[in-house]
Amino acid sequence: MICLQALPKRSIGIKRPVGFEHARQFAWYTGANLLEQFKQWTAPRPAAKFRGDMNSQKTDDPVFSKVCELLAPFNKDNVDLSDSTEITVDLEIDSVAVLDMIMDIEDTYDISIAMNQIAEIRTIGELVAAIHQLMGEK
C-alpha cells in the first residue's frame, strides 16, 4: 500500500463562504454519520482551469516539450500546459502518478531527481528548471 497522500495538499482553489455554510452542507453538526455526510455531498462548481499564459511558454525548449508529452496521458481535461501549470492541482494527478512520471524523466535525461526535491516542485516550469539544473551538473 503506497498511499503517499490521499488528497492534494491544497484545495482546488474554490473560495468557500466565510463561516460554517459548507459545514452545514456536509451536516457536520446535524448528528448524521460520516456515511450520510458522504452521500449528501454535492459537487462544488468546477474550478476555473488555468488556461496558461502564452508568453511564458517555452515551446522551443525540448525539455518542456518532453515534460508535456509525459503529462499528456494525465491531462484528461486538455488543460493548456505552461510553465505556471501546477502539476498536482491543475491536472489533478495523484502524488504516486507524479512520482512514476518523474522516473520516466530520470531515465530520459539520465539524472536523479530525489523525492525530497520533488516535494518542492509545484509547477511545470519548476520541474523543467530542475531538470536543466541537474543536467548541467552532470
Binding site: A6, L7, P8, K9, R10, S11, I12, I14, R16, V18, H22, A23, F26, L34, L35, Q37, F38, K39, W41, A43, P44
Partner: peptide, 27 residues
C-alpha cells in the same frame, strides 16, 4: 477559511463508493 478546506474533495471521492452500498473502509 477552515482547517478542513483541504479535504474538500474527500466527500466527493467517497460518495461514489458509498453510493454503491456500504462504506468499504469502515466495515
Amino acid at each position: 477559511m477552515d482547517l478542513f478546506d483541504k479535504f474538500d474533495e474527500l466527500p466527493g471521492r467517497y460518495k461514489r463508493i458509498v453510493a454503491q452500498g456500504r462504506n468499504p473502509f469502515g466495515v
